[in-house]
Amino acid sequence: MRRLEMILSRLVWFVPTMAGLVIIVFLISNVIPTDPVRVLLGENATAPQIEAMRIKLGYDQPVWVQLARHFRDIVSGNLGISIYSQRPISEDLISRLPATLELTLAAITLSVALGIPLGVISALKRNSLLDHILRVISVSGLAIAAFWLALLLQFFFAMKLGVAPLNSRIDGFGPTPVTGFMIIDSLLDWDMESLHSALSHIALPALTLALPAAATIVRFTRAGVLDVINSNHVLYQRAMGLPPGLIVWKYVLRNALISTVTQIGLIFGVLVTNAVIVETVFDWPGMGTFAVQSILQSDHKAIIGFTIWIGALIVIVNLLVDITHSFIDPRGTR
């Protein structure tokens, strides 16, 4: 019952949150000193050309009229036309969503695969040299600028060693798009060359994204495992003579996983933040590069469109995390 209540109240708040977001971003992008119409028409445009286009696009209207139109468009699912590419923004975003999802999912997988075992080991062997090294690495992972880490990886693996490509998602255009996920699509086509290419292209950006996230997971897992180990419950089990290995896997890990799931929402936020920058460095054709380009080109409608999508994405992920959490750990339902 409480679970349902929580979900419902979140859903009810979703709409005003998004509306607020639209207003804020609309106001921000409206102060931009650049004239979108001139950007659209380019350096050869004449005054009558500009005037005609301004009226056509509604930029001659007062700000509130523009905002109202904007809401009307968004509700009807139309995010407008990008000033720069002159194509529908929703179309751009849809075509770029899989790239970003593929990258962030790969990064989450990688960070969980690295973070949880390392965190558990760090806790079990606490105060050993290994523990100290891991802690230094995990503190460092959070202090390193994502774009610089990206450059470092490019420097070593792509430029010096030449074992990884520098940028983009795949050589050429890749397999027939079905899901938009290069890895899945190449499996569907059973095209091993594409699969290989996709994997090698995603390695560096995913690693860049995964390292700070893995650092966070190591820290939480370590703390979580230590908490459980020192809890009376485990002490009791140990006193009962259960083998330590079983205790670790059965009791300790389960609890550690619960705390990690809770953190995934947080980690996802960090990942999306970093993805914006990392995609830019790797020319990854996802929503992050789209956002940075739109902002740099003062493409108002594209900026608003991106913000709505990413906002919705984060709200939905957080909701999913809360729901999952309420299942795994019914005590903690808030």
């Binding site: 921000i28 902002i295 991106f306 990413i310």
Partner: peptide
């Protein structure tokens, strides 16, 4: 509303503006 979007995206937009 503010926390729904990565800080950097809003910051980029504002800084650019």
């Amino acid at each position: 509303v503010f926390l729904a979007v990565p800080q950097i995206v809003l910051a980029i937009a504002i800084a650019q503006t």
